[in-house]
Nucleic acid binder design. Structure first.
Lengths: 343, 343
DNA sequence: GAAGATTGTGCGAACGATTGCACAAACATA
DNA sequence: TATGTTTGTGCAATCGTTCGCACAATCTTC
């Protein structure tokens, strides 16, 4: 004598039984696309009964039947990095707005593990993939293409644009930084580059070289870091000052590397910005609070996340459209880490 | 005449056909739990054929049949906040280690939207839920309990512990901060509290009051912020200096609020730490870099994320175990934002 | 050597939604 | 009135796995 009989969760069949119609009719009444084929009055009754029984469409069952899951996989190189969580935020907003859900995987590891991650995601029947981990020539991307799962790259792109990508204007951005430093009178500018295997590392380095050349300066003072983190930045800074002690400015490949350089300079007793000016790249959250506040190139991470999600949705809708790369504009943010040379 | 006949993706049936056995036999051979019932030699052949056909178990179909998805939903209040992405990182590590996947939803909005999020997640048949959004008495938690989906709370807990939770030692932590400030000679200490509706806000405020009382000081100088962000922190700081202009130290409810206070003090020409000392809570990433480097109470976010995931796994395995709350130890990190009073 | 226990496979019904096809009824046209 | 044409529903197969049950063959044990 339980007053809440705990009915076993409503299904199309239970609704159909209660209404004395066939379950397929119920399904159609509930589906906005099909609804017009059903008598409006019946639709009404179905809706009411669904409400009463607390019916919830079983996405799993629907997925099995249709092969579509309204699920997308997002692979990030590093969950702990605010740059990527901001991108994720943007992706999330767009996706939930289109009633998609987001399967998130932080790779954390090397690329062999990545294919595994993609495998898992694809095994879960994701409708598409957003990768923030791409290398300039990425086997994981090949894998996605082979599997024919719609994929878009964000932040980092491949050299040959095989899939849609949303990236910052890396080359231009680094040019902005160099021009700014040169404008402050700096002539001996060094660059801490990101990893060569990823587009951001490569493009920003090229941007550095080109802008230096254009300014009539020596663009060969470059140390490339193994990874985008503070330790690598510090190590690179050490090498820079060992090889080019007369360096008056450093343009770093991203904010984390700049932070590392700052660590090193602080330890080495080099004053920033008095003795050496420093720029970063990304304008990641809270970077404006460091001491000295870092001048950097702002990348619209949130917007890029949103754009990537939109692009993926488009790719899912039309899998055969030609891949395009969307380059988002960047802006120079000047703060306290740069000073006019020699004052 | 395609040399890659693009077979329609391998299933148990295609393997069974190729081997001349029944599909259930193949399933058992592939399942480590059942494998012992099958002739080893046949297991071998099945494995080889699976390899050859590139068989991948269809999790969707399996989920439909079993009602289990090896999927957990994670709901965060704010993707952009590094504190939560660090927790997420921890959750991710543990979960992927147990071959679970992670459905991430950033609520972003009010709690009515939250039930919707939980609905979506549950509709996707998640095996469990991790909520970092809980209020002290949370309707969403009620919803989860009604739905009988295993749930654990992280960072924030409910007052009555209806579900397992992993939280920092908020009360103790704030005591650490107060004792430290008192030890530096401060007597007129104010508190910027977090929102009263969440446990962190409430417990830290109580910790503040209790520690102040224990130190024989006036613990009533409290302004509670509406939300955990920089703007709210700045607004609260403004009020504090308006009402208690003789304040020499501020213990903030978290780092973001402390940052806001710093913003205000900077704008108001109040020197930190010379005139006013300041502590935060969380020790969020990069907070050590602000100027002045913030003294704060370190919360092991990553570990808490891992612990929450482990707890959820346990709750999934044994849904009827009694809910426990796991309180993680916190430590005081002293940096440059505090000074001895009156020097 | 008969009765029972064990072992290895096969069988087929779920799980719940989707969808092409069929079919009756109502309606339009000639 | 006979012949189309809609329109609204029902029917049943399908997606790929899982798992209780059945059954034959082989192995014990007294």
């Amino acid at each position: 004598m339980d007053d809440t009989p705990r009915r076993k969760a409503a299904t199309l069949q239970t609704l159909a039984d209660a209404l004395g119609v066939h379950r397929s009719t119920v399904a159609r009444a509930l589906n906005p696309e099909e609804r017009h084929r059903i008598t409006p009055e019946l639709v009404q009754r179905v809706m009411e009964e669904a409400e009463r029984q607390g019916y919830r469409r079983d996405i799993i069952a629907a997925s099995l039947r249709t092969g579509k899951s309204r699920l997308v996989g997002v692979v990030l190189p590093d969950l702990a990095n605010p740059v990527f969580s901001t991108i994720l935020d943007g992706v999330s907003v767009t996706l939930t707005g289109h009633s998609y859900s987001m399967l998130v995987a932080g790779s954390g590891g090397p690329s062999d593990k990545q294919s595994e991650i993609v495998d898992t995601l694809v095994g879960r029947r994701v409708d598409g993939l957003i990768l923030a981990t791409a290398m300039r020539d990425d086997p994981t991307v090949s894998c996605c293409m082979r599997l024919k799962v719609p994929t878009v790259l964000v932040n980092r792109a491949e050299d040959k644009m095989r899939v849609p990508s949303v990236v910052p204007a890396d080359h231009i951005g680094m040019g902005l930084a160099v021009d700014y430093l040169a404008g402050l009178g700096h002539r001996r500018i060094s660059h801490i580059g990101g990893p060569e295997e990823v587009s951001t590392g490569c493009l920003r380095r090229q941007g550095f070289q080109d802008a230096m050349t254009a300014a009539g300066l020596d663009g060969s003072r470059i140390i490339s870091a193994k990874s985008y983190d503070r330790e690598a930045g510090a190590a690179a800074a050490r090498q820079i000052f060992a090889r080019w002690p007369d360096t008056t400015a450093i343009a770093a490949g991203n904010d984390l590397l700049a932070l590392g350089a700052l660590d090193y300079m602080r330890a080495a007793g080099i004053d920033c910005p008095k003795q050496v000016s420093l720029t970063g790249f990304n304008d990641m959250p809270f970077i404006d609070l460091v001491d000295p506040a870092l001048s950097t190139v702002r990348v619209p991470q949130f917007d890029m996340g949103k754009a990537a999600a939109e692009m993926l949705l488009a790719a899912i809708a039309d899998p055969d459209s030609a891949p395009q790369v969307q380059r988002h504009p960047v802006t120079l943010i000047t703060r306290q880490s740069c000073a006019r040379v020699g004052v």
